[in-house]
Amino acid sequence: MADANEANEGVRRRDFIHVAALSTAGVGAAASALPLVTQMAPSADVLAESTTDVDVSAIEAGQSIKTIFRKQPLFVKRLTPEEIAEANEVDVADLRDQESLTDRLGEGNEDILVTMGVCTHLGCVPLGAAEGENKGEYGGYFCPCHGSHYDSAGRIRKGPAPTNLVVPDFAFTSESVIRVG
């Protein structure tokens, strides 16, 4: 009887050590897999915040310029009074992504619209920033890839894009220069 008990005890202890060794090895393997996965995440130089300065004094009403902010296209546009009026006429409640023009321009900014030039659908660059390009049915930007129409405030009005063109953080560093980022 006592012998059998001892044998049982022995078996359990023996199993315990194997289970412990194997699970420790498993934990080790999982832990060493971690850096193998995280190395694909953006590296420190990519993550480092960078800013772009844009001189807006030369942009005339109705014109826009295309520049680069954090490796992506950035549209900076000076709106005409008509475009401002048109954008303010729209009932915000009817929009897919409900933002008013002032929400998008920011405090103390009358007419400089700063948006990413990246369609919120699947990332193409919308047309309409350059002279003579198709501005879409709402007179703003038009993405030719899948037909998203943005209005003069860069808000999505028609087509598959889910949200308005993104407005990055920006501020005026002087009368004529904005710093994006």
Binding site: R14, I17, H18, A21, T24, A25, G28
Partner: peptide
């Protein structure tokens, strides 16, 4: 530290077997 722990376990397991 972890490897030392794991190696001791591996040794005990091996000894047992």
């Amino acid at each position: 530290g972890f490897l030392l722990f794991a190696t001791i376990l591996a040794y005990l397991s091996k000894k047992q077997i």
